[in-house]
């Protein structure tokens, strides 16, 4: 709800979880609404939930508070939307999965494997000219790792987009 007319216009990253009915066309309705209202999505992932017939869509995007509020209301208006979950990093676990193909040769291979170990990532495929490394973690961790890989020569990147889940707070221990 808006209180007062002054709303902070500062843009920041938001993560919104949306529970939707799982039937054909739902994603089209959601993405169609985003494009027709001029909202930009940074990342989007769709998957099944523990409940049959209900899918989970997780969207990350940049926006000021007013825009985000309007987006949430418009998403809520879609008949297929069952619930919106605030997945701000404050209360949630946020992770992303990334595969990166880096150029490698016998000289750099050991280096790459060491860096990979230090960052708790896994080397999952090695060829004569490149290797594929799997990185899982917060998006910032992936960004940092990719930055390190840059000087070796990144050939391909495939990122899933942000996945997130609300933490459960146990009130008894407060």
């Amino acid at each position: 709800m808006i209180e007062g007319k002054k709303i902070k216009a500062k843009k920041r990253k938001h993560i919104i979880g949306i529970l939707v009915e799982d039937h054909p066309g739902v994603l089209a309705k959601l993405s169609g609404m985003f494009s027709s209202r001029g909202f930009n999505i940074d990342t989007i992932i769709v998957g099944k939930t523990a409940i049959p017939g209900i899918s989970h869509i997780i969207i990350s995007l940049m926006g000021d508070d007013k825009t985000i509020e309007q987006i949430e209301k418009q998403v809520n208006k879609l008949i297929d939307t069952i619930k919106i979950i605030d997945l701000s990093p404050k209360h949630s676990v946020v992770r992303e999965h990334c595969l990166v193909k880096v150029a490698s040769n016998p000289k750099t291979r050991a280096d790459l494997i060491n860096i990979s170990k230090l960052h708790k990532t896994s080397v999952i495929d090695i060829s004569n000219s490149s290797m594929i490394i799997e990185v899982v973690g917060k998006p910032e961790k992936i960004n940092n790792f990719l930055e390190l890989m840059r000087k070796y020569g990144i050939k391909e990147i495939s990122r899933t987009g942000i996945n997130a889940m609300q933490r459960t707070r146990d009130n008894n221990h407060k």
Binding site: K6, Q70, K77
Partner: peptide, 9 residues
């Protein structure tokens, strides 16, 4: 609710 605050604060 989406109309509230959409155009005018």
């Amino acid at each position: 609710s989406a109309e509230i605050g959409k155009n005018v604060g």
